[in-house]
Each structure stands twice: as structure tokens, then as C-alpha cells.
């Protein structure tokens, strides 16, 4: 798996597939049993100076000191990332401006909104001007507006030449920002290709159904077993005409409002690949 400069690679997989483990191996926090991680030609396991070229945002924590101000956090982590105090101050001012957080510089992190905290976390990971940015679920638990801001930010950072390895469960986020997609299951990469190629490969047999009424528990379970993605009053799935009739049978007696064959999305591709792998 390779992440090129200026691109975003979305690294997807079900829970327990090994996404965070992989991120930690790339970051040098875990030693791989097999294989090698090279960042800009150097192995982080053997050469700590590689960390100066890597920015990391890990899932499940804010990666910040909650009782310190935004500015104090950035200056402290600047030094931790290898900058001098003077450089850390300059870089802090730059990043606060870049992320639109200058007016919150003296505010304690605990008093910032989730979106601002996440922006600050990403700002921290950029202090040392990394070449590779590892983002583990960066839009998790954010509201729609904050998630949109983070998505725009990821695209902007990539356009500035940063290589970004992104893991997320939010496949719409991955589809919106990723240049390439790698899907993993049980530590094995099932597919790795550009997002557009992957979507077009699965476009021919993709269906969308909209319906009225509410799905029952049994119906939802049957649809899931067929690899159908359920989103409110709409279904999407990959399959042949036989699959279409089976989905219709499950939906009965709910009224079907529309059935169309259309462009694929990452959620349905992901579900199809997972289903195929399971049946293997």
C-alpha cells in the first residue's frame, strides 16, 4: 500500500479489520510481525527522526491537554515535535490563522466546540510541517457542519502536497475526499485502487430503491443479509435482476416509489465486497 504526496488514501474496513493497528504500525507505535513501513524512505521503527515528517491524529481522544489554552497546547506540542520554542511560537501563530482559531488562542481546549477541538488536533499534527498525515476517524462524533469543514480541510492539505492516510467508518466522507481507496478485512487488503475506478467498476449492477412506510426488524435483517445498504427510506445495493426481485420480495407489502439503476457509491461497494469475502 502506497500513499503518494498530494493524495488522500482512504483505508476502509469493518470493525476489527486492522485499520487502527495499521495506522499505529505506520506511526511506529507497533512493530509489524511482517512487512516494512517506509516513510519518505526511512523506517520509523529504527529511526526516530522520521517522526519529524509524520503528523498523527488518533481516534478516541482529542490528543490535547484540555485545561491548557489552544496556544499553549500548540506551543508545547511544537517543542515535543522537535521545534525550538521560538519556532513553535511562530508556527502556532501561523496555524491559528490558517485554521481560523486566532480568536480562540487563549481559550481552554475544554471550552472549545468539538469541531474546533478537532481542528486544533489537526493543527497540532501539522506543527512540524509533516509530509505524511495519519488521520484516524477525524470526523467521528462531529456535527454535519464541523465534518464538512474537516473534509474541506483534508482536501486543501492534500492539494498543498501532503500525503494523507485516512481511516473512517463514514464512507460518504471517504468517497468525498479520497483519491484512492484501500479496503481491508482480517488484515488482508481486498482492493486498492482509485476511487473513481472502483466506483465505475461496480456501477453496472447498482440499484437504488425508494419506498414508503417503515421497515420491520425482520425486513431490515433480511435486507442486511442480502448486502443492501439501508438509508432512511432508500435502499442501495449491487446485484443482478434476481437480487432485485429478492429485495422487492423482502420489501413487500411496503409501497415501492422508485427503482433505478445508477451510479455506485462507496457504501454499497464496501458492503458488496464484504459480502463476497464472507461467502468465500
Amino acid at each position: 500500500m502506497t500513499v503518494a504526496p498530494g493524495t488522500i488514501l482512504a483505508f476502509l474496513g469493518p470493525n476489527g479489520a486492522g485499520k487502527t493497528t495499521t495506522i499505529k504500525m505506520v506511526a511506529g507505535l507497533l512493530i509489524p510481525d511482517e512487512g516494512t513501513v517506509l516513510i519518505d524512505g526511512a523506517n520509523p521503527e529504527k529511526d526516530r527522526s522520521v517522526y519529524a515528517r509524520v503528523g498523527i491524529v488518533l481516534e478516541g481522544s482529542r490528543n490535547l491537554y484540555q485545561q491548557m489554552s489552544a496556544r499553549d497546547n500548540l506551543e508545547y506540542f511544537g517543542v515535543i515535535k522537535g521545534l525550538t520554542l521560538a519556532d513553535a511560537k511562530v508556527r502556532t501563530a501561523e496555524l491559528l490563522t490558517y485554521f481560523g482559531l486566532t480568536h480562540k488562542a487563549k481559550t481552554r481546549v475544554s471550552q472549545l466546540s468539538s469541531g474546533m477541538q478537532q481542528k486544533l488536533t489537526i493543527a497540532c499534527s501539522l506543527l512540524n510541517r509533516p509530509k505524511l498525515l495519519l488521520l484516524d476517524e477525524p470526523t467521528n462524533a462531529l456535527d454535519v457542519q464541523a465534518a464538512e469543514e474537516i473534509k474541506a480541510l483534508m482536501k486543501q492539505l492534500a492539494s498543498e502536497g501532503l500525503a494523507i492516510l485516512l481511516t473512517t467508518h463514514q464512507l460518504d466522507v471517504a468517497q468525498a475526499v479520497a483519491d484512492r481507496v484501500a479496503i481491508i478485512r482480517d488484515g488482508k487488503i481486498l482492493v486498492e485502487e482509485t476511487t473513481s475506478t472502483l466506483l465505475s467498476r461496480f456501477a453496472g449492477d447498482f440499484y437504488k430503491v425508494s419506498f414508503a412506510g417503515d421497515l420491520g426488524q425482520e425486513q431490515s435483517e433480511k435486507l442486511q443479509a442480502l448486502g443492501v445498504a439501508v438509508n432512511d427510506k432508500a435502499l442501495s445495493f449491487h446485484g443482478d435482476s434476481d437480487t432485485v426481485y429478492r429485495v422487492m420480495e423482502v420489501l413487500r407489502p411496503l409501497p415501492v416509489l422508485n427503482l433505478s439503476q445508477g451510479d455506485s457509491d462507496l457504501s454499497s461497494v464496501f458492503l458488496k465486497l464484504m459480502k463476497e469475502e464472507k461467502s468465500c
Binding site: L29, Y51, S61, Y65, F77, I80, G82, C124
Partner: peptide, 18 residues
């Protein structure tokens, strides 16, 4: 507990030094 340990572990300084 705070979730900041990983940031320290990925510093060019060794964790012992920090």
C-alpha cells in the same frame, strides 16, 4: 487517560527524556 500519550510516543525526543 487524556489521550495525549501517543503524541509523546511519536516525538523525536525519547519518552524517557520527556
Amino acid at each position: 487517560t487524556q489521550g495525549t500519550l501517543m503524541q509523546l510516543l511519536t516525538s523525536p525526543y525519547s519518552t524517557r527524556q520527556i
